[in-house]
Nucleic acid binder design. Structure first.
Lengths: 154, 154
DNA sequence: CCTTGACCTAAACCTTACTTGAGGTTTTAT
DNA sequence: ATAAAACCTCAAGTAAGGTTTAGGTCAAGG
């Protein structure tokens, strides 16, 4: 299984990337179709990846665990430098952006939790007045902008 | 618009419920098909709801905002008393259950956030070793059981 | 040479949570 | 009585995030 040539120029095949990144080959195809990762092609039309793709996939997976949709991840990744390999500062910018979103999300969930007991038990679950029904009453007031993933499913 | 008879026996039509609960009529059909709510029928085969359905829908919506999938909500709702109208204690039990899940989720997100800076920037984003890649390393250790919605999208 | 495993593309299928549309019936205001 | 607003059922469509399948190509070991 997985008989591979001795890694000629540092380029990885799709199978190797899948194995090392812990995702299915089909997932890599899918990500590529969505513009999340890139590949070159061998003479025989097979995908060849630069090693950096492993970090890209890792970041995609981490971001997904934060609840960020692929489209938003794609957008964020597109802000990475084009020619060169992203450096620590580049990644830092991404993580800072997501950290802010995450902080917001956490604050929202905490507010929700603190209302849960009172609200589900009581008679206030009205569309207009209850904090559990009205996200914005509790979640807003942290200023607008950067609603990357407040599109939960409302 | 919305010309309704004078509410003969406290039963609500689907349109009334939709308007008051703030959801689409089609959503009520859908919830009913999934066993999340119930209805009686008029002579002419139209849906008639007891007023309690408003609270049910409110609770469903609140639970969804917590990230709980409909199937789990249906299961939780099925634990409500059959004959009588649920009382405050019944709802309390539901909210307690969800609060625990929510606490877990919040803790997980906080752990994630606290690793974000360090991990995305550094070289550690490996499948095997990085806390950002390995949910269970950080998220577990709070004991097993009740993983109602830790099925995020992993 | 030739088999086998890895790879290719395109299209279909899956789940969740609904919405939309088609074609027909019921209610109700006038 | 009648027209319009609401309602009904069932089927199909949407979007996200992939997976599966079908049919064919590439590459390396024996």
């Amino acid at each position: 299984m997985m008989r591979m040539k001795k890694n000629p120029v540092q380029l990885l095949s799709v199978g190797e990337v899948a194995a090392r990144a812990g995702v299915a080959v089909s997932t890599l195809h899918f990500y590529e179709s969505k513009g999340l990762i890139e590949s070159m092609r061998s003479e025989g039309n097979q995908r060849r990846y630069a090693r950096g793709v492993l970090r890209h996939v890792a970041v995609i997976k981490a971001a997904q665990r934060l609840g960020i949709p692929l489209a938003a991840i794609a957008e964020a990744l597109s802000s990475l430098p084009d020619g060169r390999t992203p450096n620590a500062a580049d990644w830092k910018r991404l993580s800072a952006r997501w950290k802010a979103e995450l902080d917001e999300r956490i604050a929202g969930l905490i507010a929700l939790r603190d209302h849960l007991d009172g609200c589900i038990g009581c008679g206030c679950l009205s569309v207009a007045a209850c904090p559990l029904r009205n996200p914005d009453d509790i979640l807003a007031k942290q200023g607008p902008g950067a609603h990357l993933f407040r599109r939960d499913r409302a």
